[in-house]
Design a protein around this nucleic acid. Sequence first.
DNA 1: CGTATGTTTGATTCGCTTCAAGTTGCGTGG
DNA 2: CCACGCAACTTGAAGCGAATCAAACATACG
Lengths: 192, 192
Amino acid sequence: MIWEDDDSLLVANVIDGVLKLTTSTEDGREQIVGVAYPSDFIGRPFGQTSRATVVALTDARVCVFARNDFDRFAREHPELEHKLLERTLAELDRTRSWMMLLGRKTAPEKIATFLLDMSDRYGDVSACTTFRAPAKLFTLPFSRQQVADLLGLTIETVSRQFTKLKQDGVIGLPSRREVEILNRPALSALAG
Amino acid sequence: MIWEDDDSLLVANVIDGVLKLTTSTEDGREQIVGVAYPSDFIGRPFGQTSRATVVALTDARVCVFARNDFDRFAREHPELEHKLLERTLAELDRTRSWMMLLGRKTAPEKIATFLLDMSDRYGDVSACTTFRAPAKLFTLPFSRQQVADLLGLTIETVSRQFTKLKQDGVIGLPSRREVEILNRPALSALAG
DNA sequence: CGTATGTTTGATTCGCTTCAAGTTGCGTGG
DNA sequence: CCACGCAACTTGAAGCGAATCAAACATACG
């Protein structure tokens, strides 16, 4: 947990590492509302504010700007604004499909969707730059609790679903943070 | 249900009316991922695509553009892009706080949050233009099923929570689509 | 080692869904 | 004007999935 910010005065670009964006209720329930990977943008430019909290999940390097400076710079560089708009629209789409997961999917479906998502995220770019082959084996940047906060479940349910998938031979769990996809079609079928 | 679009070739501005943005699974479960009110923007410019469906909930007038035309125009008018970026960032924030609701709130909390949200949305601008007084009585643009799809609940649960709030004197239900807020503090307390 | 933290596993509870009737409101046509 | 039909909504009973509560079990670290 290297870097924290309540998003009021700063904006930043992620250079390296993974960060989570969370909101929580007074009584301590937490929901991860976004995950920032390298090259992702964090923060609310242009006078907007949000009640989200940013916390690094791994060692992370971020390029931080004072919001005022950034706003001025952005307004003078339409290409930057355009790029930011494209990224924000893409993020909005990802967020919306996550809403479907949170509102309508069952625990097994949530877990399967999550694992496929992670697998795609950590795929090799390999020879072909446009196509990214999904990873068969990868290391989660999340603890069980964080997976639960991402999927709107409890830690116990996450754990049970993981072991269920392991027992069924769909995935392997070499260590706590590592996941190996053994039967991708089965996982896709479960994802709903 | 006047207008439908799978968001591929068009973008639009809502002039009048309310529209829902939904995604659904193969087996028919539906989640409303966004609601568009007058002055809101709909669609994915700049070559992006999303699997969302747009359906009008009331009679609606929208100003439609071919995406190509819009893209070109936007790129030539940075102020437009800036405005669009601000709106998209605001929409992303709203969507993220809705994720909290979907992932972590209970049925009573979801209903209370929803009603307060609607009340704010339909408030009077009245004398002061910057402050919008929340509405005490308003007409929902949603059926019970649509409220359920918005909150990630079933129609039966929505109905039960509504009647519970009515019995407790927190709200009044003059007709199927109308809601009257009788005890706002209680509703706020329930919203979590 | 021994303690702290994170994870798994089990038993039980509870909230929401599911299934199944009723009920209300409303446009249509006799 | 009232009977009819239909769709939206409400209400009730039963079942189930995930949460909660409670221990064991690993893993990391001094």
